[in-house]
Structure formats: C-alpha cells, structure tokens
Amino acid sequence: MSERIRTGEERIRESERDLDRAVNEIEGFLLWEAEKDRARTRAEAFCAGLPWLTDTQRQEVAVRYCQDQHETSRAYLQRIAVRSASLRTEYEGVYRVLRRRLVTACVSATAVAVALVTVAAAGLTR
C-alpha cells in the first residue's frame, strides 16, 4: 500500500479548492433564490394588472408565470455556462501562445545579451 503522502501545502491547496467550490455553490444558490424571488415579484406585478382575475385564477397565473420564468432563466444560464466554458478554452489557448512567445523572446534576448557580452569580452582581451 504505497499511498502518496500529501504535504501540508497540498492539503492547503485542496482545502482552498474545496472552499472555493463551497463558496461558488452558496453564491449560485443565493443567485437562484434571488431569481426566484424576482420571478415572484414580476408575477405579482403582472397579476396586479389583471384585476378581473379571481384569487384562484391569480394564483394559477402567478404559478405558471413563475414556472415559465424559471425555465427561461435556467435555459439562459445554461447558454451562459456553455459560452463561458468555450471562452475559457479559447482564452487559455491564447494565453499559452502568448506565454510561449514571451518565453521565446526572453530566451532570445538572453542569448543575444550573452553573445554581445562574449564579443565585447573577446574584443577587450585583444
């Protein structure tokens, strides 16, 4: 049984990732609850504009309005999540290319500097 022993730093990183996930879940929950509350408020405002509805009809309209709003919001959020993932992939690719270019430029500049110093040193020793 050769389980890899985690270092303190690895445990801290894992703990931070767990904390980040928990915060994201809480934030998502709170945002969704706010969206549901907003849908209820809009449904009530919509029903207020229909004064001829009975209380039962008003409740039914409000429930259906909220359901429709939830479905619309969920579809919208799913589209945003897909787009965010594609943008992340795209930006990570661009970042890799830029990082590679920067490293290449730094290595080239260092090589040029070393060559100039070598030439200058050779010129001084003559």
Rank of each mutant, 00 (worst) to 15 (best):
F29D: 09
E25T: 12
Y65L: 10
L31W: 13
A45K: 10
S73M: 01
L116G: 10
V103E: 13
R101Y: 05
L98R: 15
A121T: 14
D55W: 05
A121H: 07
M1P: 03
T54S: 13
I80W: 01
D20N: 13
F46N: 09
G93D: 11
Q59G: 08
V119E: 07
A22I: 03
F46M: 09
A85M: 03
K36M: 01
G123N: 11
L30C: 14
L77F: 13
G123W: 13
E3G: 14
L31N: 14
L98G: 00
G8T: 15
T125G: 04
N24L: 11
L77S: 08
A43T: 00
I12W: 09
L50Y: 03
F46E: 11
E10S: 04
A45S: 04
E44N: 08
V117D: 05
E3R: 15
F29S: 07
T54W: 04
D18M: 12
E60T: 08
R100A: 11
E92M: 10
Y76H: 09
V119F: 09
C66L: 05
T7R: 05
L50H: 07
H70Q: 00
V103L: 11
G49F: 01
R64T: 04
E27T: 15
Y76V: 01
V97D: 14
T104V: 02
R79F: 00
L77H: 13
C106G: 02
I26F: 08
N24W: 12
R21L: 09
T56I: 01
L102G: 06
R99G: 02
L50R: 02
L98T: 02
G93Y: 12
L50M: 14
R101Q: 10
E92Q: 14
A122I: 00
V107Q: 03
A43L: 00
E14D: 08
A120C: 08
E16K: 14
V61C: 10
G93C: 01
D68S: 05
R38S: 06
V103P: 01
Y91H: 08
R96A: 10
R74E: 02
R17H: 06
N24T: 14
T110F: 13
E90G: 03
V107N: 03
A115V: 07
R99K: 14
A81T: 15
I80Y: 02
D68V: 06
E60D: 10
Y76F: 11
R13W: 04
E27Q: 09
A113Q: 03
R74Y: 03
